[in-house]
Each structure stands twice: as structure tokens, then as C-alpha cells.
Simulated scan of single mutants.
Amino acid sequence: MYRRQKSLVLKGSSSALYNNLSALPLPAKQLTYFATVQGGTVHLLSASADGLSVSHRQLQAKEGSLAAGTSILTQAAWCVLPSRSLLVVTSQKGIQMYEADGSIMVYWHALDASESSPGQAVFARGIAATGQRFVCVGTSLGCVLVFDIPCKGTNITLSEVLEEHRSAITDIGAELCEQPEGSIDLVTADDAGALCAWRSGEEFQLVSKIPASGCPCSSVKLWNGVIMAGYGNGQIRLYEAAGGTLRAEVAAHARWIYALDLAPLSGKLLSGAEDSFVTVWGLTCNPDTEDIEIKHCQTECLTDTQICGARFCDPEGSTFAVTGYDLSEIIRYVQL
């Protein structure tokens, strides 16, 4: 069972965007970083476990020589690689990468609006780190940009563009635990509901593709070869990543799912939706029979709140945080 803890007050609120909350635990410092975006601002917080020590920062992301206020930010998320951690921010203009605390911008990539059709929105959305050195970011054109990240410094390069999707990318999930070489370690989702499973490397390989379902897949995760996808109709579906076989389906929420998160060490799944509910699920995989089970663990209601962000704060899933549209706080829960 989880119990609600002291909330963290934001100097602002959160926009109604998919996956609009990111968390970076720092066990050595006994702190957790949180990030959520509103308009052209990234709200950054660092908080102790008891919530008594909180530090605020508002990052006005720069885009070339222009302030981010000239465009709308779409997501902020930390990408943790073996050699370094980066804060990645996406917008209508492009992609910015910062040191983990947001203090220094180390890379800026502009989106090419000329490649879009007349009247088509241009933006980046969907962020994940995979492999030993790659950060992947989705775009409204359906492309996934693969950036090669050095151990230090600013010599970040665009190494590959994945062009399998035909609709705007909504989210990207990556395997967080160490897996055998050659395993599927990346999954991408789009506005039409199509999913692609990839194997990273010097050249990324498409392993399987789940066709568009006509309903947007707003959030996606990958764990032990299983794809977990949340949809606009409130469903959560579990697929076998290697072949795309549907293994389980749950009518999880009454309205649009905005966020999924996974605790890789325990197999807990977190979902948050427009219906004001956030739910913890338990996943189990039987390697002998290839059966996948999902069970309900706990549901919490944030009355009159359109949930837009939900994240576990540690790999075991013993704590999680939630925020919502126009909500000026981050609500935290801890396992008893």
C-alpha cells in the first residue's frame, strides 16, 4: 500500500502534455530531481525524501539566439547513460541537451520546418536513452533522431534517423536493465497507435512492428522483452517485443492515458490518465510458458485533476510522484 506524502510546491504549474513529469533519483545525495514543463519554462526541483529540503529552479531554455518563450516546450526528461546523465528538452523549434542540473547547455539541434507539409505542426517529442551512448528523440514527422553522446564534452552528433513511422512520434521507451547483447532495447510509438521495436547498435535494426490501431499510443515502456503501451481509449496493452504478439489487455482507465512508468527492479507499472486516477499494477513474466500477467495493486484519485505526469522515484517503485494540468504541486506517494 502507498500513502500520500508532503507535496512539492511548484513555482507555476504543468501543461497538458503526455508524460509531463520526469524524475532523476540521486541516492548518493539523498535527493530526487523533478522536471515538468509549462509553456516555455521547465520547472526543476530537487527534493529530499521527506520533502523538507526543496530547491527550485526555472529553466528558460535557449533555442539558438532566441528565448524559448517564442515557442512551446513539449517535454523535459533525463537520459541516464553509463558515462553521464543529460537533461533533454524538446520544443516546437528543436532539441536542447543540458547537464543534469540544467546549468549548462551542451547541445542544440534545430528542427527543419521545410520538410513538413503546409499547415503541419513541427515539434519534437519522445525522449529516451538506450545502449551505451545513444539518446533518441522523436519528431512530428514520424522520425526518430539518434544522437551519439560522448563521455564528456559537447561533441554530440546526429548518427542516424529512423524513418519507420508515418505519424508523429508520441513516446519512446528503452530497456533500463542490462540485457544480453543483441536484445531489443528500444520501442517507439506514434499518434496512429503504431509501435516499432528496435535493436540498438552502430546501426539500429527494426525487429518488429505493431500496426496502427487507429487510437493514439500516448506512452510506452519496455521491460524484459515486453512492450507496455497506454492508449487514448484508456487501455493498457502488453505485447511481446520480438514478434508483436498481444499478450494482455486491460481497460485501465475511463479516459485518455497520459503517462506510464515502470520500476524495473520490481516489475511495477504506473499509469495516470485524464480520469483523475493513478494506478499501480504488478507485472510478472513466466519465461517457460511466455505468459505475461498484469494485476491491479492500488488506485489513487486526485479529484478534479487531469493527470499528465506520473513517475516512480526509484528503480524498486517504492515511491512515485504525480502532477496534473494546471496543478501547482507534485504529489508524492510512498510504500508502507
Rank of each mutant, 00 (worst) to 15 (best):
M1I: 08
Y2A: 02
R3H: 11
K11L: 13
S13L: 02
S14A: 15
S14T: 15
S15E: 12
Y18Q: 15
N19W: 11
L24C: 06
L24R: 09
L24D: 05
P25H: 07
P25S: 07
L26W: 10
L26A: 13
A28I: 10
L31Y: 10
Y33K: 05
T41Q: 15
H43Y: 10
S46T: 15
A47T: 09
S48E: 13
A49L: 15
G51H: 07
S53Q: 15
S55D: 12
Q60T: 06
G64T: 07
A67W: 09
A67D: 13
T70H: 13
T70I: 10
T70P: 00
A76M: 04
W78C: 04
W78D: 03
W78I: 01
C79N: 04
C79P: 01
C79H: 02
V80T: 14
V80W: 00
V80E: 10
L81C: 07
P82E: 03
V88P: 02
V88C: 03
S91A: 11
M97Y: 02
Y98L: 05
M105V: 01
H109G: 01
L111P: 08
S116R: 14
P118Q: 03
G119N: 06
A121V: 01
A121T: 04
A124Q: 03
A124R: 03
G126R: 07
G126M: 07
T130I: 05
C136G: 04
G138N: 05
T139D: 15
S140W: 09
L145A: 02
F147D: 05
F147E: 03
I149E: 02
I149K: 02
K152A: 11
K152I: 01
V161K: 14
L162V: 07
E164N: 12
H165D: 08
R166G: 10
S167M: 13
T170G: 12
I172K: 05
A174D: 02
E175Y: 08
C177T: 12
C177S: 14
Q179P: 00
Q179E: 11
P180S: 08
P180W: 08
G182W: 13
S183Q: 05
R199N: 11
S200Y: 08
S200C: 09
E202D: 12
E202F: 04
E203C: 02
E203V: 11
S208F: 03
C217G: 09
S218W: 14
S218E: 13
S219D: 11
I227K: 08
A229R: 11
Y231N: 08
G232Y: 09
G234F: 08
I236L: 14
L238T: 10
R247I: 05
H253E: 09
R255V: 00
Y258D: 11
L260T: 14
P264L: 03
L265C: 05
L265W: 03
G272C: 14
A273F: 09
E274H: 14
E274F: 14
F277G: 01
P287M: 09
D288Q: 15
T299S: 15
E300N: 10
C301L: 08
I307L: 13
A310I: 12
G317D: 04
T319D: 04
T319P: 00
G324N: 06
D326M: 11
I331H: 04
V334P: 00
Q335T: 00
